[in-house]
């Protein structure tokens, strides 16, 4: 466990206050995903999705830093 993959929010559907939904794109494949547990989700955010629920936003800075750290390791 557990299969969860990052996708980009392309639109948000506020109609149900207890179950905020968003259309999320995974390389062009879109799916309705529940973003109720995400703080202030916005169009353009990347969210980690598992069985139709967004678990968290991808921290884009941390992602970049991880890659940079590894590239720097290669220089040493």
């Amino acid at each position: 466990m557990c299969l969860a993959i990052p996708g980009k929010i392309i639109s948000i559907n506020d109609s149900n206050p207890e179950m905020k939904m968003a259309k999320v794109s995974f390389s062009g494949v879109t799916k309705e995903v529940c973003v109720q547990w995400i703080d202030d989700p916005k169009v353009g955010d990347y969210v980690l999705t598992h069985v139709g629920f967004a678990l968290t936003k991808i921290d884009e800075k941390e992602a970049e830093q991880t890659i940079k750290l590894l590239k720097d390791m290669g220089e040493i």
């Binding site: 990052p6 995974f26 390389s27 992602a63 890659i67 590894l70 590239k71 390791m73 290669g74």
Partner: peptide, 18 residues
């Protein structure tokens, strides 16, 4: 595939392997 492909990069894998 953003945030997936970068973490499948063979150059980074090589660095870690070393």
């Amino acid at each position: 595939m953003k945030y997936i492909q970068e973490f499948r990069d063979s150059e980074l894998v090589k660095i870690l392997r070393k």
